[in-house]
């Protein structure tokens, strides 16, 4: 896009077609301030994480003595010990198992409902859609006791399945927004053609529409997985034994588990934090776009 901007009476255009403003003293001052703010934002966002990772390679004495120093060597001993001693494997496996199974099942179920809402007219459609999306306004914590009692009454306290059930419902509204608009953008004629060709309702959904909606499914899935992978509140309330503990909950028991061996604590923290960052990096643009989108609709 090329546009004209008049700075001090001169029209200046950059080589790439973007507008470049002339460097007046005022502009230089503005740029310095702007970059100072942006640098600060980058520092507070990644500084803490970089510090944690750095510290995980330092000895206990170095952590206590000189918090800023760079590690002398990159030795992964602490990581080995965390994974070996601290049932870290169990917690990680629980987290992967619960977060991924609940995400996959919920996305299939929510795709089904989003699909019929996007493609068909039926009685009570608007009521159902409003009810489902208004859930965005209910803060999760207000439902604590009813959900706690529900899981207790189903005899699912301290089970992975109990947590799976709770996580299924974790992001109905925001997933519905993403999936519905995705299905709605698939041409309706495709459904008519496929029904004429003799494909039934289920095949039209599963073999025609699901593959075409894959970007939305991917985005909703990533967002939901991140949410469930990071969830602490219900996980800490609904599980008690180490066999069913997820990674975020295990953080709370670090102090006792490592008896103040800070190197290992930082290594464990790194191991908990990194997967989320990596998954986010894979789908950065989509995550940002849909976070902004569903917030505005809510």
């Amino acid at each position: 896009m090329s546009q004209k901007v008049i700075v001090n009476g001169k029209k200046v255009k950059g080589s790439d077609g973007n507008v470049k403003k002339a460097l007046t003293p005022g502009r230089v001052l503005y740029l310095i301030c702007a970059y100072a703010v942006l640098l600060f934002i980058v520092l507070v966002s990644v500084g803490p994480i970089v510090w944690v990772i750095m510290s995980s390679f330092k000895s206990n004495a170095a952590i206590l003595g000189s918090p800023f120093s760079l590690p002398d060597t990159f030795n992964f001993d602490a990581y080995g010990k965390v994974i070996g001693q601290f049932s870290f494997g169990t917690y990680a496996l629980n987290s992967v198992l619960i977060a991924s199974s609940s995400t996959v099942v919920a996305i299939v179920l929510l795709s089904m409902s989003s699909y019929v809402i996007a493609k068909y007219n039926f009685p009570f459609k608007n009521l159902i859609y409003v009810l489902l999306t208004v859930t965005l306004l209910v803060p999760g914590h207000t439902k604590t006791q009813p959900i706690f009692s529900l899981i207790m009454n189903l005899n699912l306290y301290d089970t992975k399945f109990g947590l799976f059930l709770v996580y299924l419902s974790s992001s109905i509204a925001s997933s519905l927004f993403i999936l519905r608009s995705n299905f709605a953008s698939i041409p309706k004629e495709l459904n008519e053609a496929s029904e004429i060709d003799g494909a039934g309702f289920f095949r039209t959904f599963w073999q025609i529409n699901m593959p075409l909606a894959k970007t939305g499914i991917f985005t909703a899935g990533i967002l939901m997985f991140l949410g469930n992978w990071n969830e602490y509140y219900f996980a800490s309330l609904l599980t008690s034994s180490p066999a069913n503990r997820t990674l975020p909950v295990s953080l709370a028991s670090f102090n006792q588990a490592f008896s103040y061996d800070y190197t290992r604590m930082f290594a464990a923290l790194t191991l908990v934090v990194l997967p989320g960052i990596i998954i986010y990096m894979l789908a950065q643009e989509q995550v940002q776009a849909s976070v902004a989108g569903s917030a505005v609709k809510g």
Binding site: V42, V273, I277
Partner: peptide, 19 residues
């Protein structure tokens, strides 16, 4: 900057509290 600013939000709030 936009990508990096998001990172604290994709980390477990429990982990962020520990950090």
């Amino acid at each position: 900057v936009r990508a990096v600013f998001m990172i604290p939000n994709v980390i477990s709030s429990a982990a962020w509290a520990m950090i």
